[in-house]
Amino acid sequence: MKEREADWSDWMASALAGDAAAYRRLLSALAPFVRSVVRNRAASYGLASADVEDVVQETLLAIHLKRGTWDERQPVGPWVAAIARNKLIDALRRKGRRVHVPVEDFAEVLPAEAGDDDGLRPGEAEKLISVLKGRQHEVVKSISVDGADIGETAEKLSMSEGAVRVALHRGLAALSQAYRSFRE
């Protein structure tokens, strides 16, 4: 546990300084953790397992967009678990349930189980990428689904790398916003 937290804090600090490799390591390690936190609670609130992965993805986007709220004196695990809890509540509200998820349920941080990292194809997220339009859609699809890097994407789409970065960032923010708008 302690070692894991030390790794996460290191990677988080590097990621905040702009290290993409450390960031990817961190997010890959956090995904099964988030999944176990969400899944652990979801069943008792009647959230389908396909929806679990939506919450996982929404949480990862929120981690990204809100990473400026992480304080380096603060452990990463509880910070992530609290974000996951918020996003789970959002997801349940979208489904029209009024719920109270006690904080204590997340205080006990579960070990991430191996074999959970199946990265299911989620329901809403499938449609989600299609909410992006034009360049944002092309850029996000190229980097996520097609696995190209920034440089390859820039070349393929005849854009500058700077423009690709901007489109990527705005695309991710738009994805997060799309989740939010389901709430209204």
Binding site: G18, D19, A20, R24, G171, L172
Partner: peptide, 23 residues
């Protein structure tokens, strides 16, 4: 979009400076 695909996209955006709360 699979979760690992999303992770790839998010990690590629690491260079965008985080909007830090404290400052």
């Amino acid at each position: 979009m699979r979760t690992e695909d999303l992770i790839r996209a998010i990690a590629a955006d690491a260079a965008t400076p985080p909007k830090r709360l404290a400052p």
